[in-house]
Design a protein around this nucleic acid. Structure first.
Lengths: 162, 162
DNA sequence: TAGAAACCCTTGAGTAGCTACAGAGTCAAG
DNA sequence: CTTGACTCTGTAGCTACTCAAGGGTTTCTA
């Protein structure tokens, strides 16, 4: 099959597939006479694996490690467990951070329940206050926003986009 | 004061200050004879405001809007409320997504409680399954990982880094 | 007063994980 | 033979920074 069909089958953007190839996550496919990429079932499996991992918010690095384990079946899978435990830890940590954040934001929001002019807005006043260093520990956890280039990431893969 | 002192006072990286200037968030400061940036109290206030907003995970765009409101005190602050409500919504949504994610990950983790070889690892099997489209809606919310360039972001501003 | 250390400058590139576009080629249907 | 859908490569863009190279300036110390 050509790249478009692979994209449809796996609910992946065509550009993303080429990106994975460049990144070494997908093996380089055969080419047709007209220089089109030709994929088979193995590619569908492999890409589905990647997308499933991505829908679980794993990094491409983590996925690379998992792929390595898939390809060396004799190895012990304790490392797979460890990787997953770490990942679960990250998610839990990010949730806790977001909970704190929500509290702070709601606190701030209550400073300005009614509508007045910006000169006396409690929210703006609150934001102008000194910075309170929070005791949060270092983690590789992302922020809240994602209007970046990929509206698809971090929200699961939602069916085939036609 | 010079940029280093401003950085210490606000717990901001020097490069970040210059970045904010380039980005139009901080007004262009005066220069000394030796071409050094010279800052005053107003800059400290302004930068503190930005960093406080960032510690609440707001985007630079959102901060820009808030700054606009600060500078036009006659305007009604209903828009400030609206912006904050939206932001709170984003955070809440991301938390929900992470909760789902955690459930899925723990589910996956239970498939391989004991240590066996990777050929029979329940986790790898689970990850190889077909993609289940989740009904998540589009949002600009980021993922779980952040080993990117800024170990400081999304975890509050923790005191002055010497 | 010389030299070293600490600070500052600009410019450009890199980070994750894509997305989007330009400008070209390929292929099947009508 | 043309139209349109598809594909190709290469490059630039997105967030919010961070880092490094290769210089200049200031300040402290001997």
């Amino acid at each position: 099959m050509k790249i478009g069909e692979l994209a449809r089958l796996t609910g992946t953007n065509v550009e993303t597939i080429r990106y994975y190839e460049r990144d070494g996550l997908l093996p380089i496919p055969a080419r047709s006479d007209g220089n089109y990429r030709i994929y088979g079932d193995a590619h569908v499996q492999r890409l589905s694996f990647i997308r499933r991992c991505r829908s679980l918010d794993m990094t491409l690095e983590e996925i690379r490690v998992l792929q390595h384990f898939k390809e060396s079946p004799q190895e012990n899978c304790a490392d797979v467990n460890r990787l997953l435990d770490l990942h679960i830890g990250h998610v839990a940590q990010r949730m806790q951070e977001l909970q704190e954040l929500e509290m702070q934001l709601k606190d701030l929001r209550e400073r300005c329940g009614e509508t007045r002019d910006a000169a006396h807005c409690g929210i703006l006043e609150g934001l102008s206050q000194a910075i309170v260093p929070s005791g949060k520990t270092a983690s590789h956890v992302q922020g809240t926003h994602w209007h970046a280039a990929n509206p698809n990431s971090a929200k699961g893969i939602q069916g085939n986009q036609v």
